[in-house]
Amino acid sequence: MGDLQCAARVFVARHGEAVYESELLSDAGGWLSPLGRDQARALAERLAPERISRVWTSDMARAVQTGEIVAAALGADVVVRTGLREFGVGDAAGTTGDPDPFAKTFAAWLDGDLAARIPGGESGEDVVERYAAVLDEIADAHRGESVLVVSHGGVMCMALSAVARNLALSHSRDRPMPNCGVVALEGDADGWVARSWADRPLS
């Protein structure tokens, strides 16, 4: 992150409810359900007072669709970044996901072990590095402005807890991120601070 004179205000939202081509785990696919579209429109209404200057989304369709609905309502443009996508499923691709193949690694991440790796996939360090790089790009591009980032629940819970200097990595353990739930961040030369989590203010 550059030497910011003014803080960037970044609202990071999980995408709306999605449906999928298959029940098997994959790093691709998924699109908004009718409820997900309604959630995206409601998100736009909630963010209207914030004067959002741009919407950034992951490259996964469910996030792009959410971002496009919000951007159209707010008169903003959309930028897509791969670094904002959900953590990869690795060797679990093509499986049912029952039992949860990520539970052990995700728990290790929240316990502070970012070297732990999804089998065949990313480590926590990998995830935080690529996610933080995009957040820093956004902060440098939007000094003194407010932007929306549309991302995914798992990566938000882990990576945002890692980058915000006022949060512990374990912060999200009992705080799941609902569809179109929002984490409000402020970023300046001193780094990131979380101001709210899943729409609840943080002290």
Rank of each mutant, 00 (worst) to 15 (best):
L160F: 06
D91R: 09
A76F: 03
A72S: 14
A72G: 15
R175V: 06
D113I: 09
E137K: 00
A184N: 02
Y131A: 00
C157F: 03
S146T: 13
V182G: 04
V163P: 03
A168L: 03
V64G: 00
W109V: 06
E86P: 08
D136L: 04
R165N: 13
A71V: 04
R165W: 05
L110V: 05
G67Q: 02
A108S: 12
S172P: 03
G121F: 09
G121N: 13
A71S: 15
E137L: 09
A194H: 09
L135G: 00
A198V: 10
E86D: 14
S146H: 10
G120F: 15
R130H: 01
H171D: 11
R165I: 12
V183W: 02
F102P: 08
W109R: 09
E86F: 09
G94D: 11
A194S: 15
V183K: 05
A73G: 11
H171Q: 06
E129I: 00
G97A: 06
E145N: 07
V128H: 01
G67V: 01
T82G: 00
L74R: 05
G67P: 04
M177R: 06
V193E: 09
E68I: 12
M158W: 10
S161M: 12
H171Y: 15
F106S: 04
A168T: 13
Y131L: 01
D113H: 14
Y131G: 00
L160W: 02
C157L: 11
D199F: 11
G83R: 01
H142P: 06
F102R: 11
S123H: 04
I118Q: 07
A164I: 05
E86T: 07
A71M: 10
I69Y: 01
R85V: 04
H142Q: 12
S196T: 12
R165Q: 12
H142I: 07
S172H: 14
G187M: 12
D188P: 05
A63T: 03
D77N: 14
D91A: 15
C180L: 07
V134F: 05
E125F: 08
D188I: 15
H142D: 14
G181M: 05
Q65K: 05
A133W: 00
D126E: 08
G181P: 03
A194F: 02
A76L: 07
S172D: 12
D113F: 08
N166W: 08
A189P: 06
L84S: 03
A198K: 02
R173C: 13
R143D: 10
P119Q: 11
S172Y: 14
E145V: 05
D77F: 00
V78H: 02
I69L: 15
P176D: 04
R117C: 10
S123G: 04
A116T: 06
P101N: 08
E186Y: 06
V128S: 04
V127N: 03
R165D: 14
A184M: 00
L114K: 11
A141T: 09
A133Q: 02
E186K: 10
R62C: 02
Y131V: 01
R117M: 12
H152R: 00
